[in-house]
Design a protein around this nucleic acid. Structure first.
Lengths: 209, 209
DNA sequence: CAACTTAAAACGAACGTTCCTTCTTGACAA
DNA sequence: TTGTCAAGAAGGAACGTTCGTTTTAAGTTG
């Protein structure tokens, strides 16, 4: 087909990205061959190479899409006003993640957390991607640090608590639950909320470090 | 060398495992070629293939070593009596991890968290490894669930809290911080402790789910 | 028909692995 | 103690396969 519509081109590109994402979520970036992707999207090499210059670019496109999604989730969570307490904020962020990227594998496993951990491993390999991830992380850290400050303002927690450390800890919770979703599946945001509430109910013992 | 001592054989095997671990931590399992490993350990193919039947077996050996280490850390943490509160227990678990597997890459990055995330991606590919990981996770969940119960017994938290959910949440914290260490480096267990204390100091809002 | 997309075959490079050779070692006889 | 030998560990070239990519030809649509 010649001079095909822009919608067609966009749709093809998306088809390739979606198919590649399935492959990558299933097998990882480097254990997935181009031929796996070609079979998944049911296109020939010539077609795919018209939209992406190579495997590297395909990987990079998917990695940045995942990172953008995650960054968006975190930042949207930070914009809620007034900010909910962590036991609501964090599960809600994960729920939004599922709303926004609901795709599943054949087995029913939710694809996105799997892609996340694949992206993590890939960023340790690629300095360029590491920069993107690092920038996003820094922004999220400050945004969530501001949430913590607002907790303080609302009298929900002592003013001398370490806001940045708490922000990082909340981010770690999201990452850790994403990991558990990817690895074991069948774990709901509800569980995270219950666990967080339980954790926040623990009376502190005197620090003994 | 013929009929060489058992210590020699063990040392060679360890040399190969250590070198391969460096490669894998740096580039991941499937972006690392056998020739990369051969160069890293400064041995020929003939030598390495005398100790491991192939790349798969090498990967499996390293994955199970990592999983065993992590499981050991979690279980040892669960055996402390009386159990410290989470803000002490969890950073201590990570500190023990560093004690036990202190190896670093050339750049000074701590190798073990990187290996952990590589292992996560590999377990999603291999049903056998997924079983090993799943079994370990189940055990850790119950062990840490018992810690939570002992918190309740000690009057540190309400008796109706969801112990299993809290155990999973604490595990998620360990995983999330491991991810941050792998991805961004330069984050101390101290930060996790501070963040956790801050998190535990937040007054709960009424549940609104 | 012209413009351009797609299919399919084919390419060189790199992969994991094997195979045969070379070298090293420990045991044993003298 | 020394010299010899068999066993086996290590070396390294070579194998067949599979990889990512390119090229060429056919097909399709405005």
């Amino acid at each position: 087909m010649a001079r095909v519509s822009q919608e067609h081109l966009d749709a093809r590109r998306r088809q390739i990205l979606d198919g590649a994402a399935s492959c990558f979520a299933r097998n990882g970036f480097h254990a997935t061959s181009m031929q796996d992707v070609l079979k998944e999207v049911d296109l020939s090499a010539g077609a795919v190479y018209r939209y992406f210059s190579g495997k590297e670019e395909l990987i990079a496109a998917i990695v940045t899409e995942v990172l953008d999604t995650v960054r968006g989730i975190f930042e949207r969570a930070a914009q809620e006003s007034p900010p909910p307490t962590p036991d609501v904020l964090i599960p809600r962020a994960l729920a939004r993640m599922r709303e926004q990227r609901p795709a599943t594998l054949e087995g029913g496993e939710w694809m996105f957390p799997r892609l996340m951990i694949q992206v993590w491993t890939e960023t340790t390999r690629s300095p360029e991607l590491a920069v993107v991830l690092g920038d996003g992380y820094r922004n999220v850290r400050t945004a969530w640090g501001e949430i913590v400050e607002s907790y303080k303002d609302a009298g929900l927690m002592p003013a001398d608590a370490d806001a940045d450390a708490m922000a990082r800890t909340m981010i770690a919770l999201v990452q850790g639950f994403a990991a558990q979703m990817a690895l074991f599946g069948g774990i709901s945001e509800q569980t995270l909320g219950d666990g967080l509430r339980a954790l926040m109910s623990v009376g502190r013992a005197p620090a003994d470090t």
